[in-house]
Design a protein around this nucleic acid. Sequence first.
RNA 1: GGAGGCGUGGCAGAGCGGUCGAAUGCAGCAUCCUGCUAAGAUGUUGAGGGAGCAAUCCCUCCGAGGGUUCGAAUCCUUCCGCCUCCGCCA
Length: 445
Amino acid sequence: MLDINFIRNNPDKVREGAKKKGMDHHIVDEFLRFDEKWREAVSALDEARAKQNKITKEIAQGSPSTLRRGSGQAALREECLEEAKQLKERVALLQKEERELQEKREEALLQIPNLPFDDVPVGRDERENKELRVVGKKRDFAREGFEPKDHLALGEGLGILDFERGAKVAGSGFYYLKNEAALLELGLVRYALDILGKKGFEFCFTPDMAREKFYLGTGYLPRGPEAQTYMIEGTDLGLIATAEVTLAGLHADEVLGEEELPKMYAGYSHCFRQEAGAYGKYSKGLYRVHQFTKVEMFVYTTPEESETTHQKLLALEEEIWRGLGIPYRVLEMCAGDLGSQAARKYDLEAWMPGRAHSAGSGQGDWGEITSTSNTTDFQSRRLGIKYRRKDGLLGFAHTLNGTAIATPRAIVAILENYQKKDGSVEIPHVLRKYVGKKVIRRSRK
RNA sequence: GGAGGCGUGGCAGAGCGGUCGAAUGCAGCAUCCUGCUAAGAUGUUGAGGGAGCAAUCCCUCCGAGGGUUCGAAUCCUUCCGCCUCCGCCA
């Protein structure tokens, strides 16, 4: 959520920001309208309450000043009580009005997105994202004399992925990781954690569920037609779609000291996504699943540091993928593809030789593997994440998130990029010590 | 899951239904004292919102919501969390 005073003082900037993100900018005016009405209601309510407090005090002290003349003390007291009762009703009425307006104002406020930074590329959707660089070299399978397989064929051939039985037991979109695939998953996690540990991140296994208010605070809508989240019936708990929710919630309603910032967490969790409506050959196999493991980076820092921190998170994601030896490209999201929380966002896409090309013809395509966002104070305002500045004042911390490793897509990229003509798969050097072998071959059984 | 207890300011910890935004201690800040540091003296310090050019004034907040009352940190109730005991389990 944005700073209310900022919206009041800069409605044009807010409208423009929402427009850049391709969102309806009329909500800004709607907010301002309710805000105005709400303020009037608050004034009226405060006035009534002030009167109520005054008369209440007089009753307590037994010296009513509002009714000096007249009959005896007992009668005066009676009159005061009568007036107090009337005020009580009036306050209740005004309070109801105030609450209704407050609610509408809040509702509008929550729909206003975070503003993109000025230098974020303009654009409507993912087609206008800006490619910053391509790192690594794609393998030339034609020269090697064979057609690359996709990870499904490879994984099932090697007996390390089982989607059929995953579907039997839990439904389509679930899977079993077996043998080397299981070791790859664990190895990838350790690999990422080992890198992050050297950079001062604290490791954190988070809950895989969170209360609804933390989804809302982080900027996700857990219910409704477009919701990604699985909610637990009869509770306000949901399975998290990313540890961003639990890591942002970690310091909700807390005051951090400036000297303890930046606070950097490497959070391990399972992620659960409904992925409703996402089917087809572009999302088959491990690419789009209902449950997966992810190590998420999450940083609390100061407004002064957030942009340089964001660059560091991006650099870390690149370090992890460069180490895996897989070609990737770096994209900066255009304003229209930022989502409501981010002021800036970068994605890494890995080359996946077995992936059906989205343009139709040809083999291989880029597939999203990481995403890092600077959400500035958008989340911390809603979640109450403050920090005590060196000058003694309170400020809202900035929060940033980024994917360290999302294991299934990493496994997709590894299988497809490291495959050999005979269907075996080499294991990237950096992972060998975790997996305990150099090559995955079909077992003889 | 059953029984009981608790939830107050950055922390610790008082608080008869009205004079409580809240004693006290610690921490913080300012000044003084001291050759420096430590110790000490005095003062000061919660958050949010509204009105006003401003000085300032007003309102709300004692885990969250609801209720009783002219008036609730204090009484009732629901929820959340923590602690103790029992049960159940990995």
